[in-house]
Amino acid sequence: MTVEQKDHIYTFQEGLKDGIPIGLGYLSVSFTFGMMAVAMGLPVWAAVLISMTNLTSAGQFAGLPLIVTGAPYLEMALTQLIINLRYALMSFSLSQKLEQKINRWQRCMIAFGNTDEIFAVATGKNGYVSMAYMLGLITIPYIGWASGTFIGAVASELLPEIVRSALGIAIYGMFLAIIIPPAKHNRAVLKIILLSVAISCIFHYFPVLNQVSSGFVIIICTLLASLLGALCYPIEEAKENG
């Protein structure tokens, strides 16, 4: 993942292509968001504006009841901070994945589109990624996210339920396609994934622990598993195995 093909420069077109499955997956999620926002009493334009400015699923869903009930702004800010804190980890990781020549302003642009899925695909590439590739990668998911919200908000009956349901698994299929091939070649990576999955399942299925918000659970799993990986299998060892 970090050694081979360091000199390949990923193009805008490659980014666009990699963005297609993300965009398709986003359609169904943002469709649901649009429907829910309108059902809770928000105007269509507000639902679309939220999607176009936030570009995050969990945070947007969590924000809806706060807007509708007129919660304090501080509560809104804290809720978004907690749910989205994982992005700080992802941006930190992505900062090491971008070509050195990408300047600060460009980094600030890329940051806006650093969603779970875009981060996942970008870090799954070999070597460094270029500005052009990142722009391509963000384009289709952004359009999918905004238009899905609009369609969901305007016409909740447009996509048959069975199609929406099936599209729900797209994102996970993509995640697996990213993590399984490296895990096949690298024992350490496999162990870290299994550990993270185990912690995640424990938090989901055990009483008391399942009260922890999903945003926090992902942060806990990530920190524990990656720290253990860094301690037990420092990077040269990981590469030797790979």
């Binding site: 981060f119 990213i178 995640s200 992902i218 990656s226 299998y233």
Partner: peptide
């Protein structure tokens, strides 16, 4: 190096 795998697994 391990972080993306841990995030996506979880």
């Amino acid at each position: 190096f391990y972080m993306p795998y841990a995030v996506l697994g979880a």
